[in-house]
Design a protein around this nucleic acid. Sequence first.
DNA 1: TGTATTCATTGACTTTGGTCAATAAAAACG
DNA 2: CGTTTTTATTGACCAAAGTCAATGAATACA
Lengths: 191, 191
Amino acid sequence: MLFDSLLEALKKLVRVDIQDFEIFSKDLQHVQLKKNEIWEQEDKISHFMGFVKSGLLRQYSNKDGVEFTTNFFMENDFAGNYVSYETQTPSTTITAALEPSELFVIPFSVLQAYHRSIPSTKEAADLIGKTKLLQVHERNSSLLMNTPEERYYQLVKEKPALLNRVPQYLIAQYLGIRPETLSRIRKRHKN
Amino acid sequence: MLFDSLLEALKKLVRVDIQDFEIFSKDLQHVQLKKNEIWEQEDKISHFMGFVKSGLLRQYSNKDGVEFTTNFFMENDFAGNYVSYETQTPSTTITAALEPSELFVIPFSVLQAYHRSIPSTKEAADLIGKTKLLQVHERNSSLLMNTPEERYYQLVKEKPALLNRVPQYLIAQYLGIRPETLSRIRKRHKN
DNA sequence: TGTATTCATTGACTTTGGTCAATAAAAACG
DNA sequence: CGTTTTTATTGACCAAAGTCAATGAATACA
């Protein structure tokens, strides 16, 4: 019941043995975040892999007092700064809740121990990593090759649900433009 | 002799057993590219990991007839579209030689076979993957958070050697700006 | 080495997005 | 429910980058 959504998400990646999953799930920590509460701070190496049971999170950086949103994590997304963990470099981003959120969280070190005893955990982790890798590449291409307007409509197409839940100025941050500009882009395509 | 530069590059990543390396190096293919010759085409899944012995390559995409340079590979760089291979999705980029170049190349499948017999090959491959991952993240941040001018001077700082070898209009492509704009950025900081 | 080609620079102008400020709309909350 | 706070929109203006075209410099190569 509690872990149903995680189980479903994993089933989409690998064949899951229920016994294994029950053992595994005992090591999951349950994190509850209030709105605006920070899950992971910057400047330290990330130690956790998370799964969003409910809610919505935002990953962002600060540059000279200006915030840039680098990612959103919604329910059923795998969240976490795996770049920081994988490369053992301090995170340059903050991850905080935009809505009250519930996460299941596992220390990377514990997860890696499971990689030996339950190989499908490694398979799944690798697949998640590959998906993230593909995403970050696509974001690169998009930032390099597309106009802000194109990026916006790509987002509308790919994550329509986000737009109703995230303030526009954060969408603008994610797209790399000012809120006023996003407002005008939207206006152009009304009527 | 022939593989010296590769051996050195690997030694920076892992402890290399010379016997192992000699066996391994027998499986390397030697690729010679003339200027402007294409190494890897787009629209197919990439099968090779490469090491640049000498020369300079450029990875780029085409969008509506406009080219965007996504990466440069110079001597002692590991090259190849590992995203395409890892995710088994067709490459969206072309990799071609900017200068006459020599590569050592190994099929990913052969490399993976070595991962069993010579564990350090896997260690090295993983480290290379992590480095690339970090690079692509840094590029994301840079495209999102920095101005074209900042990106240019960051490049000047990080890869000064590139600037003398790559036509400016390709640097501009890489930065996501027009050649005229790059020319003007450079002009601002003269005198 | 001379000619052709490619590349870089510059100017004039346009377009796009940023800035600032005012106002309106929406959301949060006691 | 009404008040405060946050968010979105709009206008006027500015700055940065793009476009187009001309010229000059560098490079390739026959």
